[in-house]
């Protein structure tokens, strides 16, 4: 039995009803939006589903949409079912004033460092994470660099003058 976007979407809506919002299919990959508080039930249901078997978490990342009032930070999950060779994407939005979302480390062990990286870059706090601290940047950094309002370059460097680099 091969999975299609319709089968998965219908099963999700049957099970979770109004939590599944905005289903789209950019470049044929099913993309749905879920509320941040429901990520653990939905993802563990998808993993343990007898037919779908989404055993693999391909990727977990964050995106910052400063223009979205109230829901600026997004956590994106990419799931993969090997048996059916089927991928899907799940988005969960949180607000930048209180960016908290439950962790999925219990469901997929690979989420551990991926959530730390998302916290390091965007400041999204994962409730229940065993070790939520910075992973790639220095521990004493006091801002979250991937947010759109911060510049790329280190502003304290003296040897590169912005006017020569077109900035």
């Amino acid at each position: 039995m091969s999975l299609t976007n319709e089968i998965v979407l219908k099963a999700l809506i049957d099970q979770f009803g109004e939590h599944i919002k905005d289903p789209t299919e950019p470049y044929t990959m099913l993309t749905i939006t879920i509320p941040a508080s429901q990520n653990v039930p939905i993802l563990s249901w998808l993993r343990d589903h007898r037919d779908f078997q989404f055993v693999f978490l391909t990727d977990l990342c964050g995106v910052h949409y400063p223009a979205n009032g109230g829901l600026e930070l997004a956590v994106i999950y990419h799931l993969h079912s090997f048996i059916h060779n089927y991928r899907m994407r799940i988005k969960a939005f949180v607000s930048s004033l209180n960016p908290e979302i439950p962790t999925i480390t219990e469901i997929y062990a690979s989420a551990n460092w991926m959530e730390r990286e998302t916290y390091d870059f965007f400041g999204i706090r994962f409730k229940g994470h065993p070790q939520l601290k910075r992973i790639l940047n220095m521990d004493d950094m006091n801002y979250f660099p991937m947010l759109k309002q911060y510049p790329l370059e280190d502003q304290l460097r003296e040897d590169k003058e912005d006017k020569f680099f077109g900035r």
Partner: peptide, 13 residues
């Protein structure tokens, strides 16, 4: 001199 990585996390030289 930091190379192509003129970023916040790389020592410029």
């Amino acid at each position: 001199s930091g190379g192509i990585f003129d970023t916040y996390s790389v020592l410029q030289g």
